[in-house]
């Protein structure tokens, strides 16, 4: 019998160590994904939780023909397009400021930045709902004292999505700051010294040295925020219930309603799969473009 080489045996041991993790992943990730794919092709509701009637892609077809689904798609893209760049630029700006050596008491800033991140979105929603209450809220009161007009934060359909965006930025920008800050502090010093010797000013150093070097961290931060923004649900649930009208009806909230009010797991699974495909596609595009630029 031919004996395995040392390297082959070494590799085999590695695979054996992976088996428990693989099994757990199979159980908690692959199985639910597969189950929801099956559900999306059957008629399955909470009132009749049986896989009796195979309907093929008709659940997907009914979703595509629903005008409010397309509204949710539009609102969700708008939300992601507002929230991610805002969080990135504000977060990068704060991270750059905090990375300067002359800034003192950094631990206090880190502590303050961590607070919104550890709060539950429901608590954040409730707090901001009170602060931005159009008639009794402190924000409108202060704006009034400063001579600004009345702002209907949640009741004006042109403003409500922007309000939800602001609250989300308030909560999530800390994540961006801390991630980018950790990247900035771990950058090597030599490229910056070379840039200084070559006469590069602050902006040139930022655009042509620091930012390219940070690209792997920026990619991770952007990807993480794009994915979680697409899945935002709690804030809308607390702040606006998708209204006024359908102006803040994000796709995840649409899925929630289909599941728990419509009691229809099949259609909810179909919408979830469509969302999954969109997120996967965007992830691949962002990953490829930023990595390509980095190379």
């Amino acid at each position: 019998m031919k004996r395995m080489s040392f390297q082959a045996r070494y590799r085999m041991i590695g695979y054996q160590f992976l088996i428990p993790t693989f099994l757990v992943l199979l159980l908690v990730v692959a199985m639910p994904l597969l189950f929801s794919l099956v559900l999306s092709m059957f008629r399955y509701t909470f009132l009749s939780p049986r896989l009796n009637e195979f309907v093929g892609f008709s659940n997907y077809a009914s979703v595509v023909h629903d005008q409010y689904f397309w509204n949710s798609v539009k609102v969700t893209f708008l939300f992601v397009l507002m929230v991610v760049p805002l969080e990135f630029f504000i977060g990068y700006g704060i991270a750059l400021m905090l990375s300067r050596p002359e800034i003192r008491f950094k631990s206090i800033f880190y502590f303050i930045l961590t607070i919104p991140m550890v709060m539950s979105p429901v608590a954040v929603g409730l707090i901001w709902r009170m602060l931005l209450h159009p008639e009794l809220g402190v924000v409108n009161y202060l704006l009034g004292k400063l001579g600004f007009g009345y702002v209907n934060w949640f009741g004006d359909e042109r403003l409500a999505l922007f309000t939800v965006t602001l609250v989300d930025v308030w909560q999530q920008v800390s994540f961006m700051v801390l991630l980018l800050l950790s990247g900035i502090t771990s950058l090597p010093k030599e490229p910056f010294e070379s840039a200084t010797i070559d006469g590069a000013n602050w902006l040139q150093t930022l655009l042509f040295v620091k930012t390219p070097l940070l690209m792997p961290i920026i990619t991770v931060a952007l990807l993480q925020r794009v994915i979680t923004s697409f899945k935002t649900y709690d804030l809308v649930y607390i702040l606006t219930s998708g209204g006024p009208g359908v102006s803040t009806d994000l796709i995840s909230y649409n899925i929630y309603r289909t599941t728990f009010m419509g009691l229809d797991l099949s259609v909810a699974s179909a919408v979830s799969y469509m969302l999954l495909i969109v997120i996967l596609a965007i992830t691949v595009v962002i990953f490829r473009s930023t990595m390509k630029g980095n190379e």
Partner: peptide, 23 residues
């Protein structure tokens, strides 16, 4: 009936569209 919650949600959506979005 079985779908009272969904019925109320639909009613709420359309009424909100009328008063807020001019439907």
């Amino acid at each position: 009936f079985e779908y009272s919650s969904q019925m109320v949600e639909m009613l709420g959506r359309e009424l909100s569209l009328i008063v807020s979005s001019g439907k």
